[in-house]
Design a protein around this nucleic acid. Sequence first.
DNA 1: ATTGCGTATGTTATCGATAACATCGTAGGC
DNA 2: GCCTACGATGTTATCGATAACATACGCAAT
Lengths: 336, 336
Amino acid sequence: MRMQDIARRLGISAMTVSRALKSDASVAPATRAAVLKAIEELGYVPNQIAGSLSSSRSGFAAILVPSLNNPHFSETVLALGNALDDRNMQLLIGNTEYDRRKEAELVRAFLARKPEAIILTSDGHDPRILPMLAKAKIPVIEIWDLPTRPIQHVVGFSNELAMRGLIGALIGEGYSRITYLGEADDADTRGASRRLGYCEAMAAAGLAPRLCSIGRPPATMSDGERGLETVLAAYPDTELVACVSDPLAFGVIAACQRRGWAVPGRMAVSGFGDFEIARIAVPAITTVQIDAAGIGREAGAIIGEAFKARRDAPPAAIIRPVPALPCLRASTARVR
Amino acid sequence: MRMQDIARRLGISAMTVSRALKSDASVAPATRAAVLKAIEELGYVPNQIAGSLSSSRSGFAAILVPSLNNPHFSETVLALGNALDDRNMQLLIGNTEYDRRKEAELVRAFLARKPEAIILTSDGHDPRILPMLAKAKIPVIEIWDLPTRPIQHVVGFSNELAMRGLIGALIGEGYSRITYLGEADDADTRGASRRLGYCEAMAAAGLAPRLCSIGRPPATMSDGERGLETVLAAYPDTELVACVSDPLAFGVIAACQRRGWAVPGRMAVSGFGDFEIARIAVPAITTVQIDAAGIGREAGAIIGEAFKARRDAPPAAIIRPVPALPCLRASTARVR
DNA sequence: ATTGCGTATGTTATCGATAACATCGTAGGC
DNA sequence: GCCTACGATGTTATCGATAACATACGCAAT
């Protein structure tokens, strides 16, 4: 069924049907009502593929995330989706699985569908995607980081500084034998930035870094359970395990509790991200607070601004930093 | 840049370029190589919107989930996405937020993009979507449940029987003062089926149901923290809280631990779904094991079968039950 | 009465790839 | 040496909505 069929039925032209479906176009109220009624009765659903080809507006934005079943990004995706709902746009979600090659494939596949904006959550990019993105002439937003060489817009924070701040605060609490537990093969990922921040904070306090790694990104709760062994094998005198993320920290705490070790007391543990589990777990987990939903909302706002700018003036890159502050909780409380 | 531009540059026709991009079409190897080289050099990305309009194959499937930041569905979505990767299809994800109206809007919006299959994870449907789905003439797969009146294909299990089995097993362990903690406003949701299963198991043992609810779906860890109060206010002698999901159970356990109550011992708690947190938490949480990723993979397989069937024979509805078995863990262990 | 303008609608061309059909050349069978 | 068949490529029409332009009508201002 096409618009033509609706039109013929009402003795009008397809163009009038098309206009009746756009809320701003000028159509007589009676005509519009008749069109909407006929559409409802016939169960007609417009073919947006044809519409997109004609109008060269696809009506969706694309987002690439490194991992979906991870509270970090699902909250951001959710908030961005809601923000786009208001503009009547859909969100196409791609999962890069922390793999640059997969990221590049997805960028190509998504660009073929002519998204009106693209959001990248991936860490370091395959260089081949840059010319593709440039040619697409759409807003590009990198989130969840502050890249040294941004492609265009950015909504994020420095993972390095955030972790440095957290470790600095923990050193201030009196901890010194702090061991970092991150992911293996984390080159060019946010995990690597956090590790760097840890090293800087340790160096600033005159302490030698103590680094361990477990599993490939993303770090899971199960990795944390196994990770405690790794940490203790390498640094038996560890008094605090600083983890690259909250789920990992939760796993480490669980492993401690299975051994009958008090957290805090026998061992302290910190995470990163401040997701629900960090607040609910017993003990509550010391972490870095990130407004994951806020990042999604801001990205949505930037898409709006970029569309307006394109009409008014040459678009300028927007760099929007979001706060990332240490949040000390029970899991690292000092115990007399 | 269009195919025409690539073609002109090589002195061939656009059709040959199009064929060179499909792996099965007959093109001379030398020609194909030249085309691919030119495409690479020019950074050309085919316009799939035009391709879809012409070939009437959109190259994606749509999935509606009630909630994204919920391990239940993100694992399924992930697995389905991977299954579709193999068929070179993309996955369009929609979030209904447990809202029928939103589900209906999304179905309409998605159908406008002509998906080649649609997967529904939502519970009860808005009746208006049925004619729309029928007209679309694409495979429809309902997952995560066994509807009494399936639209077409199904990959799922009976939430009612699964919860009945779990509660039955717990009664077998010697529990009797079991209070159910679910969501408010759960009419026509999986939560309601689980609640029903609980009631049946209690009735079968000659026990009166003890029902509590907290928050709207989806139940969160935070709901669990608050939920313990609700349970104790209504049924102070509760010895086991049977929760509608694992995150809720985790929150209840955390609340118990904050009070200094031993779990198990002072209170036992069960969940549903068997997600990572249920295995890692201390104590590990008694739950119903569901292979969430397996559901996604099966759905992908059904899409494949449906496409083949459409060519060969009239398509038949496939009902594929998946196991949902009780898994007793430490959180409900009997303590002398 | 005439001009002019705005509102409601129709007509035509177009977006870019691909299905379907047409053509051309050549290798192989007899 | 002729015919067939198939492999490689070109040509044309088409998918369905919409942008851009064209038209018709009515009402207000002069």
